[in-house]
């Protein structure tokens, strides 16, 4: 195997593995930039993966063919927004501890998704295998460029959406009045309030966008990788997305870089077995590597993280 193909394929696999993380990390950013900690990303991903599996299954049944996975994506967004309201109501309206409320989402998601899978599919702990899932699409012309053609332009539609969303999110957060307001609410809510911004409303919007994006991330896992939803479809990706968000300093481009890094280290797992010099490394160390490297990078280069100033604090207008 020549190195050009290998490099292209490695890049491709990296993006496949990072897609879900990119969505979820972007989701985390919208919530946390508005000042609401979101530890529930894992839960929102579960809800999304579940909704995508069930909706796509019924859409297939109804004979919608290749449109079915798109219905799945939409269902994931809808369920993500609805469930994000639980987090929003508890942490914004009732001023509950935001960390706790995020963990509640994870518990509810772990319970509710499997409960309803078993209910809908006669006690099975797994949804039936989907036949209509996303396939890789080659972009004409661009996909024949060496290395990056295979790496970038021969991928799942969801991956293209994720990459485009990174730049959209960056633009929205840093170049539009809406983004300025969202960030203001997360940095200094009382100043934002004085300037006429409805703090709680902005935070509701932040959390809802967050739920939608994280659910899209979960749906991606179902519709490109597993083709089914079971108890282990989402196992820890939400927490990795939180890490990617912090690693990327709450900036969409940074989070994209961090997510790609985690994706790369996951992709590398399959490639190390191919070379004679690397195949004797115990697999556990290969698995461990991304997490170890993250800590090292954080300690060596990043240091103190620049979280939004009002992160985690419910807004109380009576308090100064």
């Amino acid at each position: 195997m020549d190195w050009v193909t290998t490099l292209g394929q490695l890049m491709n696999t990296t993006l496949v593995f990072s897609t879900a993380l990119i969505f979820a990390a972007l989701g985390g950013i919208f919530s946390e930039r508005s000042g609401v900690t979101n530890l529930g990303l894992e839960g929102f991903m579960m809800f999304g993966a579940f909704a995508a599996a069930v909706a796509t299954y019924y859409a297939e049944d109804a004979g919608m063919g290749s449109a079915a996975p798109w219905i799945g994506l939409i269902a994931a967004i809808v369920l993500g927004v609805i469930t994000s309201l639980i987090h929003a109501v508890a942490s914004i309206t009732f001023k509950a501890d935001q960390t706790i409320s995020g963990i509640v989402i994870n518990f509810l998601a772990a319970g509710a998704t499997l409960y309803f899978v078993k209910l809908i599919f006669d006690g099975n702990g797994e949804t039936p295998l989907l036949t209509q899932v996303f396939n890789k699409v080659a972009i004409p012309g661009l996909s024949s460029i060496p290395i990056i053609g295979e790496g970038l332009f021969h991928n799942y539609p969801t991956t293209y959406i994720a990459i485009v969303l990174v730049f959209v999110a960056f633009y929205v957060l840093f170049k539009t009045p809406f983004g300025l307001r969202l960030r203001a609410v997360g940095e200094h809510p009382s100043a934002a309030d004085t300037a006429g911004i409805n703090v709680n409303r902005m935070r509701y919007i932040g959390v809802m966008i967050s739920g939608a994006l994280a659910a899209l991330g979960g749906a991606t896992v179902t519709l490109t990788t597993t083709s089914t939803f079971a108890h282990n479809t989402i196992s820890g990706q939400g927490y990795i997305a939180i890490a990617a968000m912090i690693f990327g300093k709450w900036n969409p481009i940074g989070a994209f870089g961090a997510a790609a890094f985690f994706g790369l280290s996951q992709a590398v797992r399959t490639y190390v077995t191919l070379f004679s010099w690397s195949k004797d490394i115990p697999q556990e160390f290969i698995y461990m590597l991304p997490y170890l490297l993250t800590i090292i990078v954080l300690v060596a280069a990043v240091g103190r993280s620049a979280a939004p100033a009002a992160l985690g604090q419910p807004y109380d207008p009576g308090k100064r």
């Binding site: 009732f94 994870n106 518990f107 509810l108 319970g111 409960y115 078993k118």
Partner: peptide, 19 residues
């Protein structure tokens, strides 16, 4: 399905948090 109990526990924490 035994997973129901996770919903119960999640709700209990929810109500404790959102006092």
């Amino acid at each position: 399905p035994p997973e129901l109990i996770r919903i119960v526990i999640g709700s209990i924490i929810f109500f404790i948090a959102a006092q």
